[in-house]
């Protein structure tokens, strides 16, 4: 059933994301051909091409911001409308466990966030060209290797993925908690997000103080070893795992036992 839910979730979201990515990429190619950067620099006096170039760059930056915002909005809207709005009448009468509904939304949201990120990178590469790409990537890899060792190539992506999933679930938790209120549910969801965020920041602070004694000295000396850095990140990974679990259990419990659709 999870696979079926995800099939429809991707179907519902791809009709927005695919055209969005296509527009961004096409726009990057157009920008590349016009090459605004060169135009601005090479022309000594301001002419009509400069205006085109500036407009092009501005539009491009606007597009990238749009991709980020659309990704976020679709994520929230799919959860809110499809589960807690009118469409919830269909989704919650399917013979499917509520945790599968949540997981399907989380997996699709994580996937689209990653794809949005990758598309943006690709579009930047299109604009800037591939001249130094090889050496740049090699430098990044080298940096990870010297500071974290081979483990870095597992720990860094894992941490990124967990942090992404964790932030998404936290948004879902806030929206779900907002549904416990009988009125002003949208405002309540927003308030809940702020509240949860504050609580976790506080816990994180205490957690840092707790583990700080072991890790901090090495960092303060300015010579953290490979092990220190990896341990440091592992503590954060642990924190994200706990945060994901707590938020997931809260969300699922409300959807399963305290659902009150309007």
């Amino acid at each position: 059933m999870l696979a079926k839910l995800m099939k429809y979730e991707f179907k519902a979201t791809s009709r927005i994301f695919i055209p969005l990515y296509a527009v961004l990429l096409v726009f990057s190619i157009v920008n590349r051909i016009i090459n605004p950067d060169n135009l601005i620099r090479s022309s000594s006096n301001f002419d009509i091409f400069d205006i085109f170039a500036i407009v092009g760059v501005t539009l491009y930056i606007g597009m990238i911001i749009a991709v980020v915002i659309v990704t976020l909005i679709i994520m929230i809207q799919r959860y809110y409308k499809n589960l807690l709005g009118d469409e919830g009448y269909l989704m919650f009468t399917l013979p499917v466990q509520s945790w599968k509904l949540i997981i399907s939304k989380v997996i699709t949201s994580v996937t689209w966030s990653i794809l949005s990120f990758l598309t943006t990178i690709v579009s930047l590469i299109i604009i800037m060209g591939t001249k130094n790409l090889g050496t740049d990537i090699r430098e990044i890899f080298e940096f990870i290797k010297t500071s974290m060792g081979a483990a870095g190539f597992v720990i860094l992506p894992l941490y990124g993925l967990l942090m992404l999933a964790s932030s998404i679930i936290m948004i879902f938790t806030a929206i779900t908690l907002g549904q416990l209120f009988s009125k002003h549910r949208v405002i309540a969801s927003f308030g809940m997000y702020c509240a949860i965020y504050a609580v976790y920041q506080l816990i994180l602070l205490l957690y840092m103080l707790l583990i700080g004694n072991n890790i901090a000295p090495a960092f303060l000396r300015g010579t953290p070893s490979i092990l220190d850095i990896n341990l440091f990140l592992l503590f954060f990974i642990l924190f994200e795992c706990v945060r994901i679990s707590i938020n997931f259990v809260i969300t699922n419990n409300i959807l399963k036992n305290k659902l009150n659709l309007e």
Partner: peptide, 9 residues
């Protein structure tokens, strides 16, 4: 009817 369908608790 909504309670019957689990849409209301």
């Amino acid at each position: 009817l909504k309670i019957c369908n689990g849409l209301l608790t």
